[in-house]
Design a binder for these strands. Structure first.
Lengths: 232, 232
DNA sequence: ATATCTTTGTGTTATAAAACATATTTATTC
DNA sequence: GAATAAATATGTTTTATAACACAAAGATAT
């Protein structure tokens, strides 16, 4: 019955990959798929480690980040259910260049990369899945390089808020960001100090672009925010 | 005899991909492979265009760059013979997010992406080739995000010089960079103004880390340069 | 419940890097 | 080969943002 429950989890949540596979392949995944629970802020894997698993976020939220100069952290990518990560380094045949941790309590599935590689070897659709994902991520990273280096603080923070919205969406009120994130993470997402993230957030409140209640951020003028993000 | 010459060019210069293919696949490539010559600074493709070709740099040098805020340009990647580029956007099913141009007079081969996709469909080794390339590039871009946002000017310029060395190597004297690049490009590579690139270069000269003769840059203390690049 | 630690919020100061200005040298063009 | 344009060089000013300092509010532990 564990097998049965697992199959349900996998077939429902991993639907995009799942539909690509045949019966035998599905069985191999079920046999090697391990469910893990991570607490808030728990590390999933760390920079410089050797990649071993394909990670699949089933529920919760996760982030990929990189420790930089003088204790500064840059959040590189946000993960939502159901997304896959942790495979790049294995494919590149190198250690991880970034770390991953849970933003909130999360459930993840882990599949040995050796198995994934084997599945790819015999299933071209799976190969295409990863070619597509890698290509999209690479485009995103290249765009991010320019956004983070050339935009001013207001533009970077506005962009970060839009990234949060695009990744996790709004609550049922259609305006409150569906993520509970501290100011420090917000700063690490938009390449600035925590002080400046707080200050700039206050600016946006004064300009009636957002409403802030603790960590709850309500976006009341999304077009303006996108405008600030674009030209700034 | 055109076919014969082409086959020679392809089989010698594209060796890494070439060895992966069988006779029929090789013939299909030869039939659709087009040689193009680009002048210095000529655009190969531009941001927002739809990707059509896999480009292969056979000789010369090229750069991928992105126009940013207020006319500022960021060089994202340098291309040397024999490297492939221009395929990411096609795989991501989106327009180009960056542009490509020749740094010096260059010869390139163009292969329709539809053909490449078709070849991948029936040749898993070719799929692996692209999975590997994309993975390496993505790791590079993620690392670059942190380097460009967190390092100071000296560190960024030192890194850029090391990037030039790693990509194009030294002349026969084992210390002069094998690339003739203007200060503006150097600045665009390391995310700073041209003035600051010039100024910082002068600093390095005064510190006896490099010798500059016009655009010829001779690196006389590579370990020091790597050190500045690492902690700066 | 009280103490302790963490996060948030603001004001002030310091500074790295851009912006601007202007020579000077090096390429291009006619 | 003179004229013009572009690239390089360097000094000065301005500014965006980090760094620092400290208070207040929340969260966590004892």
């Amino acid at each position: 019955m564990i097998k049965k429950a697992l199959e349900k989890v996998i077939s429902e949540d991993m639907s995009d990959i799942w539909s690509i596979l045949d019966g035998d392949e599905k069985r191999r995944i079920i046999d090697h798929f391990e469910i893990h629970h991570f607490k808030k802020n728990q590390i999933i894997y760390a920079e410089k480690e050797d990649p071993e698993y394909l990670w699949c976020l089933l529920s919760g939220k996760a982030k990929l980040f990189k420790d930089g100069v003088g204790g500064r952290v840059q959040i590189l990518r946000l993960i939502r259910p159901v997304q896959y990560f942790g495979y790049r380094a294995y494919f590149a045949n190198e250690p991880y260049v970034s770390s991953a941790s849970a933003i909130e309590p999360s459930t993840l599935g882990a599949l040995p990369m050796s198995l994934v590689a084997d599945l790819i070897q015999h299933n071209i659709d799976l190969a295409w899945f990863f070619i597509h994902e890698l290509s999209r991520n690479l485009g995103g990273s290249d765009t991010r390089i320019v956004n983070l280096t050339q935009k001013h603080i207001r533009g970077r923070l506005a962009e970060a808020l839009m990234v949060l919205k695009d990744n996790y969406g709004y609550e049922d009120d259609n305006s409150t960001l569906r993520i509970y994130m501290g100011r420090e993470d917000l700063a690490n997402l938009s390449n600035m100090t925590t002080s400046n993230a707080i200050r700039t957030l206050t600016c946006f409140v004064n300009e009636k672009i957002i409403i802030v209640d603790g960590r709850r951020i309500k976006i009341i003028n999304e077009p303006m925010l996108r405008k600030i993000s674009k030209f700034g």
